[in-house]
Structures are given as structure tokens and as C-alpha cells.
């Protein structure tokens, strides 16, 4: 069966630095995939290659089997991919409702767009913020408004880059529950480094280290893998493998 989104030997170089090094992975319909790794693992670069913000040096990104490398970010979004960036990327001068509705308006009429936008805000538990100017909201609220903006057009795949960065523990727990709920209808890729959050939501986890896939398995297996602990602690995983049992 053709994967919804797949990468084949995806590589991104910046001069002599290889930020993403031959990453191959595949995400199916309604799959919840977490992409983790310590700082500098290449997660954000990989995210930008998927979303068209970077053009990879080599390799392919396949959407339902079609190579989408070279497409502009707006064209990738139009395929049915919702994208949430690491730092909330919002229309600060608009109200939450206006901003969320704008994403839906491309697909539906004015009235329907507002209805769907309100429904998305309600789903995120922030319907009371509909009339608030986005630029005046707190960071956690902005994260939720951006999630609503991404979810409202009902994309087939949602890519979330550190969706809980800067959120309170309560907001993080709420977002974890929400992502689990959303994964019933959408395929979701979550790029994160917060292990607690991953533990709360993950089904399948791919670990990146120095731009390569270190390990890919179910969440319990990955999170108990000593190599994953090593890279998070800054120890090279090869060192452990080199030590005789």
C-alpha cells in the first residue's frame, strides 16, 4: 500500500554540515508518528524539508507516491498537509476567529469557513478567545490558536513542530489528549524533544541523531533503548556498542 507521506534517502547539507543524512521513513493513513532527537539532531531541518521551506540536497519526499520536492510551501499545504511551526506563526493583528477562518476560507465559503473555524476553536477549548486579538494572547493560548488554525481545514496529514513548547503542564496534558483524539481522523507527525510528552502520545517513534535515523520502533521499545538515553545524555551510542558485554 502506498504511504501517505514518505521520504527516501532525504539529505540536506549546509556547506560541509550534513544536517539530515539519508533519512528514509514512511507514514501511513491515520498514523501517529513522533520524531524525536536531542538538540541538533536535524529534526527541524527535516521538518522544513517536508514542508517545502528547504529544498533537500538529495533524496525524495513522496506524498501518496508523488515526489513533492521543489514544491513551494503553499503548494505542499494545498495537498492537504497542515503545518504547525515551532514558534507560533499567527496573524497577530487579526482575531483568533478571523485567523483560523482564513485557512478554511480557501476551501469553503465565508459562512462555512466561520462555522468551521468556531468549531475548531471549540474543539481546542478556546472558543472564548474567538474575538481576541491574537497578538495580545499568552504563549500557551497562541500555541492552541495555531493548532486550531492547522486543524480547521481538516488536512489529511498534520505536522507539528514542538507543539507544546512553552506550554504549562496543564496545557501540555490537554494538548497530548487532543493530539491523541485528532489522530483518529488524521495522520500526525509530531517533532519533539520532550520525552514526557512523547510518552503520553506516541505510538511509533523515530529517533534522529546527527541527521540519521538511530532507531524506529514502538514507543515503549524506543524509550527504553539505552542508545536513545545515550544520545539524549550527549554520549555517542557507538561507545556503548563498542564495549564488550
Amino acid at each position: 500500500m502506498t504511504a501517505l507521506l514518505a521520504t527516501e534517502n532525504l539529505t540536506m547539507r549546509f556547506g560541509g554540515v550534513v544536517a539530515v543524512d539519508g533519512v528514509t521513513l514512511s507514514i501511513g493513513e491515520r498514523e501517529l508518528r513522533c520524531l524525536i532527537g536531542p538538540n541538533g539532531a536535524g529534526k527541524s531541518t527535516f521538518f522544513r524539508c517536508l514542508t517545502g521551506q528547504y529544498r533537500p540536497t538529495s533524496g525524495r519526499v513522496l506524498w501518496r507516491g508523488r515526489d513533492i520536492v521543489g514544491l513551494e510551501p503553499h503548494a505542499i499545504a494545498r495537498l492537504g498537509i497542515g503545518i504547525k511551526t515551532q514558534v507560533p506563526s499567527l496573524f497577530d493583528g487579526l482575531t483568533a476567529l478571523e485567523g483560523v477562518a482564513l485557512g478554511v476560507r480557501r476551501l469553503h465559503g465565508e459562512r462555512e469557513a466561520r462555522r468551521r473555524a468556531l468549531a475548531a476553536l471549540d474543539r481546542l477549548g478556546i472558543a472564548d478567545l474567538a474575538g481576541a486579538t491574537v497578538g495580545l494572547l499568552a504563549h500557551g493560548q497562541r500555541q492552541l490558536v495555531e493548532l486550531a488554525t492547522v486543524v480547521a481545514p481538516e488536512p489529511d496529514l498534520i505536522i507539528l513542530d514542538e507543539p507544546t513548547a512553552g506550554m504549562s503542564a496543564e496545557e501540555t496534558a490537554g494538548t497530548a489528549a487532543l493530539i491523541r483524539e485528532m489522530s483518529r481522523d488524521h495522520a500526525i507527525v509530531v517533532v519533539e524533544h520532550d520525552m514526557q510528552f512523547i510518552r503520553a502520545i506516541a505510538e511509533t517513534v523515530t529517533v534522529l541523531h546527527q541527521g540519521r535515523v538511530l532507531v524506529e520502533d514502538t514507543a515503549p521499545v524506543v524509550l527504553s533503548d539505552p542508545r536513545v538515553h545515550d544520545v539524549y545524555l550527549g554520549r555517542p551510542p557507538e561507545a556503548r556498542q563498542a564495549v564488550p558485554a
Binding site: 510551501p73 503553499h74 499545504a77 503545518i83 511551526t85 499567527l90 496573524f91 482564513l102 488554525t149
Partner: peptide
């Protein structure tokens, strides 16, 4: 004008 990246990520050229 408010946010070029977000508009682009919502599918607007």
C-alpha cells in the same frame, strides 16, 4: 502582511 509564512502554510501563494 501580518505573517507571510503562516499565509503560505495555509496554502496561499
Amino acid at each position: 502582511r501580518e505573517n507571510e509564512l503562516r499565509a503560505s502554510l495555509l496554502g496561499y501563494d
